[in-house]
Each structure stands twice: as C-alpha cells, then as structure tokens.
Design a protein around this nucleic acid. Structure first.
Length: 287
DNA sequence: AAGAGGCCCTGATAGC
DNA sequence: TGCTATCAGGGCCTCT
C-alpha cells in the first residue's frame, strides 16, 4: 500500500500518540504475516517505553526503552488504527492514515497503552513486524538497501553511474529498493512523467541531463506528497479530512485514456504492464 | 551477475 | 445471480 510519503505520514501521526508512552499489553491474533511474527513477540514489547518513532524508506522504526527495536512494514494493505478508550472502557476508533473505520476482519496485532490501543490491520498480510536486538543487526538490516532520495549519497552522479552500463529499464530502477529506497509504483510513474522520460527506456541510454531531472523530480514528488498527507487511492468513503490528497495531483497514475496535463501536449496517457506492475505515461512527451 | 518472472495473500471490480 | 479473471500502493526468491 504505502510508499515513502505515506509511511512518513504514519510515522508523524504515530509519534504524536506513542512517544514516551509504555506498552501495557500485546495481543497477536494472527502470526502469519509476510514474515512470521516471533512466538515471544509479546515479551519484547510489553512494559517497554517508546523512545522514538523513526522511518527508513517504507519501514517504521520504533526504538524501545530496553534497547530492542521494532520494525514495521505495511506491505501493500497494512494500516495502523488508533483506538481511544472511553470512560466505559470501550475502544473507539480515531484512525490517522487512510482507514476511517476499523475493519472487522484481519486485525492481526493489538498493542495496548494506557487509555488507548493500536491495531494493525492487513488483509493481504504482506506486511510484517520484526524485532531487532542490537545496533549491529539494525545496521545490517538495511545495508543492502539504496539511499533514500533525501540522503546526500543520492545525487545525479549516483544515478548516472548506476544506470550507465545497465540494460534494465528506468522504471524498474526506480522501483529497485537496492538502488534507491522508498519509491513505489505510483511515484515511479509520476517521477518519470515530470522528467519526460519513457518508462521503458534502458538505463544505459539515459543521459546525464535526464539523470539530473530524475534527481530533482524524485525529491520534488516525494516531498510534495508528504506535504499533502500522502496519496489515498482505495478509500473513497471517508470525508473526515484525514485522508491524504496527493492523488489529486497525479499527472499520470490511474489516468489511462485521459489527456496529458502538459500544456500544448496532444498526448493521451497510456497504461502498460512493466514487470507485472501498471505503468502510466505519455508517449508523446516522455521520450 | 544482471535481470526477468513467479509468488506470497485477500478483496474489489469487471465481464460473461 | 453467480461464476471467473484481473488487478491492487511490496519485496523476496529462483531461474537463466
């Protein structure tokens, strides 16, 4: 479901709720996520205080007082719900990302604090929870991943040097987390549109000027998305204003058959399957 | 070794 | 109505 901007919005909302709070109780209702939830998962969390909520790429990183680290990945369909406990001890939903009401099914993990709880819901179960026990394993966990777009390691030259001898198409490069971390299927299409590059263009035929555009537009698109609270594409029911709104800024994603938004461009947005992921682009202005 | 493709899983929607 | 097929915001593993 979420790409870097959406996970960042979750991180921000979570921070406001749980930093310096202590986990009272944990219920695991279904261990069968993408990675099996460890059998002693509760032990690692209960009575731990949340020191900080960080994020790398699409991973949420919760630093716990006992020095363990909880890693959360939302996969394609994971959502975290915040439920407040009222005077009658009934939990009522106050969701913060993309999920107006707590669904009845697929609530796999519940984390109780004083007066509220977090519920992890994930129909497809591509998400996962992981406990990391020390700093070394923590660094190792992310060592194969490429830099985030905001990291100084990410630069025009970094892009160019990685692409220059490669036959892989540029769309798949942007989705390759070992090259750059945080871009997903929506933002890859959007970045290439703004950069006027055709998604099927091979790495070795992307020139330096184009790399510069990718560099600039990657940061632009992700930062704008964060500014607008991320993109909400599946949940159209909620009107509470808690949804992200970047979907209104999509130039190509889910715009198949519609006119290209570039001024004076006569192109029509096309949809093409690249490595089994839908890719949207304007063949007229993306060369 | 790089790169293509399959697979994990459920739910919504389209088409017959 | 009730089937089947296709597609979803991700990432890991395998095969060539």
């Amino acid at each position: 479901m979420p790409e870097l901007p959406e996970v960042e919005i979750v991180r921000q909302s979570l921070s406001k709720k749980i930093i310096r709070k202590t986990i009272k109780k944990v219920i695991v209702r279904n261990r069968n996520l993408r990675v099996k939830v460890p059998i002693n998962f509760k032990k690692f969390l209960e009575n731990q205080k949340i020191l900080n909520v960080d994020r790398f790429s699409k991973y949420l990183i919760l630093f716990l007082s006992g020095r363990n680290i909880l890693l959360i990945h939302l996969g394609m369909s994971g959502t975290i719900h915040f439920l407040e406990q009222n005077k009658k001890n009934i939990f009522t939903n106050t969701s913060f990302y993309n999920s107006p009401e707590l669904p009845t099914n697929h609530n796999h993990i519940e984390i109780f604090f004083d007066k509220f709880k977090l519920v992890y819901n994930d129909p497809r179960r591509f998400g996962f929870f992981e406990i990391i026990k020390d700093k070394k394993s923590f660094e190792k966990r992310f060592e194969k991943l490429g830099p985030e777009p905001f990291n100084s390691k990410f630069s025009t030259n970094y892009i160019y040097n990685n692409l220059k001898n490669k036959k892989k198409n540029i769309k798949n490069f942007l989705l390759d987390q070992n090259f750059i971390s945080g871009i997903g299927n929506i933002y890859a299409s959007e970045i290439l549109y703004l950069s006027k590059i055709n998604p099927i263009k091979k790495g070795n035929s992307v020139n330096k000027t184009e790399c510069k555009k990718i560099f600039k537009n990657t940061k632009l698109v992700l930062l704008n998305a964060i500014k607008r609270g991320g993109s909400s594409i599946r949940d159209f029911k909620d009107l509470s204003g808690k949804k992200g709104s970047f979907q209104k800024n999509f130039k190509v994603y889910q715009r198949e058959g519609l006119k290209c938004k570039r001024i004076n461009c006569k192109g029509i947005i096309q949809k093409k399957n690249i490595l089994n992921r839908s890719t949207f682009f304007c063949a007229f202005c993306q060369k």
